[in-house]
Amino acid sequence: MADLAALDRRITDCRACPRLVAWREEVAATKRAAYAEWTYWGRPVPGFGPPDASLLIVGLAPAAHGGNRTGRMFTGDRSGDVLYQALYDVGLASQPTSVAVGDGLELYGVRITAPVHCAPPDNRPTPVERDTCRAWLVDELRLLRPTLRAVLVLGAYGWQATLPALAEAGRPVPRPRPAFAHGAHVRLADGLHLLGCYHVSQRNTFTGRLTPEMLRESLRTAARAAAVEAPDP
């Protein structure tokens, strides 16, 4: 890939996984009653954020009526509401909400992506689907290499998917591979910081397993590791 914009365009045209293609398009056609007036995106969702980001946040996959509807990662669902509010609270986003592409939202020094770019049934990609999608994350990591200083992974699934992608992108992932934990912080031999945080799923946020302050602290730690500086107000 020559640049991230070209990569994003190729991602949105991907039809490599028949089950995911069928599901994302079925959801886009049938819709949810609350979004009956929306024209769903219904395609793979590319990463979001500046091409010179020093911090990469890795989730799991787009939500059926979130990113699959809006075309932006973590946008249009409650998980996204929690994440973007926290990003705004710590100075990494221009506004506390992410509603739709073109809503004016900017991220400062941060890019958001996922190891699987299509919405999966029951939020569960198969191992084959995860591995098929890995090439996109590998390319994204390679393109971000000149500026990338830290990767914050949300959840164990994303952690397990990110480690082999980092290795394929030429990063020195240690052996044995580090285990996921909330608050995990590993510095690779080349200086890249790898950090773990519970996923912003409703299961975690509604039960208090992940509180807003826990998420903000994870973002602050990752931002310090990446040396992200928010713009002056």
Score class of each variant (00 low, 15 high):
Thr132His: 04
Arg78Ile: 02
Arg130Ser: 11
Ala156Trp: 09
Pro115Met: 07
Val138Ser: 11
Ser94Val: 06
Val101Thr: 13
Leu192Thr: 06
Leu148Lys: 02
Pro178Ile: 03
Ser79Lys: 02
Asp77Cys: 07
Arg171His: 15
Gln160Met: 13
Thr147Arg: 00
Ala93Ser: 02
Gly104Tyr: 01
Gln85Ser: 15
Ala64Val: 01
Gly155Arg: 09
Leu192Gly: 12
Leu83Gln: 04
Ile57Phe: 03
Asp139Leu: 06
Asp122Ser: 10
Ala189Ile: 11
Gly80Phe: 11
Ala61Ser: 15
Ala181Lys: 08
Pro125Cys: 13
Gly76Gln: 00
Gln85Asn: 13
Leu107Tyr: 02
Leu141Ala: 04
Glu140Val: 09
Glu129Cys: 10
Ala135Phe: 08
His182Ala: 08
Leu143Met: 03
Cys118Glu: 12
Val58Asn: 05
Phe180Asn: 13
Ala93Pro: 00
Tyr84Thr: 07
Thr97Cys: 04
Gly71Asn: 09
Pro125Thr: 04
Gly67Trp: 00
Thr132Leu: 04
Val58Ser: 06
Tyr157Lys: 05
Leu192Ala: 15
Ser98Thr: 10
Ser98Glu: 00
Arg124Pro: 02
Arg124Thr: 09
Leu105Ser: 00
Val82Trp: 10
Leu194Arg: 11
Asp77Thr: 05
Ala63Met: 04
Leu60Val: 15
Arg78Trp: 05
Gly183Pro: 12
Val82Pro: 02
Ala181Arg: 15
Pro121Phe: 05
Val151Asn: 10
Asp122Ile: 03
Gly66Trp: 01
Thr97Arg: 12
Ala64Pro: 07
Gln85Val: 00
Ala169Met: 05
Leu195Pro: 06
Tyr88Gly: 08
His65Trp: 14
Val173Ile: 11
Leu105Glu: 00
Asp103Ile: 08
Gln95Met: 03
Pro115Glu: 08
Leu154Glu: 07
Gly102Ser: 09
Trp159Gly: 02
Pro62Arg: 12
Leu163Met: 15
Cys197Gln: 09
Val58Phe: 01
Pro176Tyr: 04
Ala114Pro: 01
Val101Gly: 10
Asp122Cys: 02
Gly104Arg: 05
Pro172Met: 10
Val128Asn: 07
Ala161Asn: 13
Leu143Gly: 00
His185Gln: 15
Gly104Ile: 12
Leu154Ile: 02
Met73His: 12
Ala135Asp: 12
Cys133Arg: 11
Ala86Met: 09
Leu148Pro: 00
Val101Tyr: 10
Trp159Lys: 07
Phe74Asn: 04
His182Thr: 14
Pro120Thr: 06
Leu137Phe: 10
His182Asn: 12
Gly76Tyr: 02
His193Met: 12
Val128Cys: 06
Leu152Gly: 04
Gly170Met: 10
Leu141Gln: 10
Pro146Ala: 05
Trp136Leu: 00
Gly155Thr: 12
Ala184Val: 14
Thr113Tyr: 10
Leu166Ile: 14
Leu195Phe: 09
Tyr88Lys: 07
Gly183Ile: 13
Val82Cys: 10
Ala114Met: 15
Arg142Thr: 15
Arg149Ile: 03
Pro127Met: 01
Leu107Ser: 02
Ala189Ser: 15
Leu92Phe: 05
Gly91Cys: 09
Arg72Trp: 05
Asp190Met: 08
Gly76Asp: 03
Ala179Glu: 14
Val138Gln: 09
Tyr198Asp: 13
Leu163Ala: 09
Phe180Asp: 14
Asp103Trp: 01
Ala100Glu: 14
Val110Cys: 02
Ala179Arg: 15
Ala181Phe: 03
Gln95Asn: 01
Gly196Ser: 12
Asp139Trp: 05
Val101Asp: 11
